[in-house]
Amino acid sequence: MNDTAQPQGIISLAILAMGGEGGGVLADWLVDLAENNGHWAQTTSVPGVAQRTGATIYYIEMYPQTASPTGQPPVMALSPFPGEVDIVLASELMEAGRALQRGLVDADKTTFIASSHRVYSMTERTAMGDGRVDEAKLLAGAQAAAKLFITADFAQLAEQAGSLIAPALYGALAASGRLPFSKAQFEATIERSGVGVKTSLKAF
């Protein structure tokens, strides 16, 4: 956990998640985390109908108020730009592949956090033979593409806690040390939300 380091300039995060996985909640937590700890923050989302049950990209930017030379918030972007995203979180392995395909992961810049479990796409399910994407190749590609790649079956961890996957990904992000906030500050955001606090903290 990084309790002392301060970011230089805007920190950008992209979350790729499917419907019902709590991606919007995770994005809101990150904005709350930033705003309650001396940062300006903004989130946007681009919903989609492709893949399974609709896949959405949530984009967050945060900026430390002390870093502003004018005391005013910066103009923040509305969507991620390839090669310029500091942290990418993917709720499932195919979503990780989608992040790679879009160029959101950069080997010199990006911390990439992805769950290793699978929810098969329609093209995989409807193939006449075995149409599954090679998981080993996806994982190897993610490892090669990112500055730091963190992966585990976060869906299983969340299920064990009786929660959605979002809090488990939030915990992985906290443990990565890439954001200038303490574990207690991450947990306080969950507590402020007031919904499913006990199970979310357990998954976190």
Rank of each mutant, 00 (worst) to 15 (best):
Q101N: 14
S45A: 14
G48V: 07
A96L: 15
D106I: 00
A172T: 07
I190R: 07
P180N: 03
M76P: 01
K202W: 02
A114S: 12
Y120I: 10
S45F: 08
A166M: 12
G196R: 01
I15T: 09
S79C: 00
L201G: 01
L16Q: 08
A127T: 04
P73Q: 09
A166F: 13
Q72A: 14
T189G: 06
A50L: 14
F154L: 13
Y170H: 12
L13P: 03
A67D: 11
A144H: 10
E95Y: 02
Y63W: 06
Q185P: 03
S115T: 07
Q185Y: 09
A145F: 10
P80E: 05
A203Q: 06
M94I: 13
S45R: 14
K198H: 01
N37A: 06
M62K: 00
D86K: 04
G103S: 10
L179A: 05
Q156E: 15
G129Q: 08
A67H: 02
E95L: 12
H117S: 10
E61H: 03
V75G: 00
T56Q: 11
L100P: 03
S68L: 10
L138A: 08
Q51D: 10
L89R: 05
R52F: 07
A175E: 15
Y63I: 01
A114H: 05
A67T: 09
L26I: 00
I113D: 01
E187N: 05
E21W: 06
A14S: 11
A155E: 13
V133C: 03
A174L: 07
T43R: 15
A50I: 10
S121A: 12
A174R: 13
S79E: 15
A152C: 03
A27F: 02
Q6V: 12
Y58R: 02
Y170C: 01
G71R: 09
L93V: 15
Q101D: 14
P69M: 13
V119Y: 09
Y58W: 14
L33Q: 04
T199H: 07
K137A: 13
S12R: 09
L157H: 11
F204M: 11
A34C: 05
G38V: 04
A55W: 04
I87T: 03
V75I: 11
A188E: 15
A158Y: 07
T56M: 03
G162F: 00
Q185D: 06
T4M: 12
F204C: 02
Y63H: 04
P47Q: 03
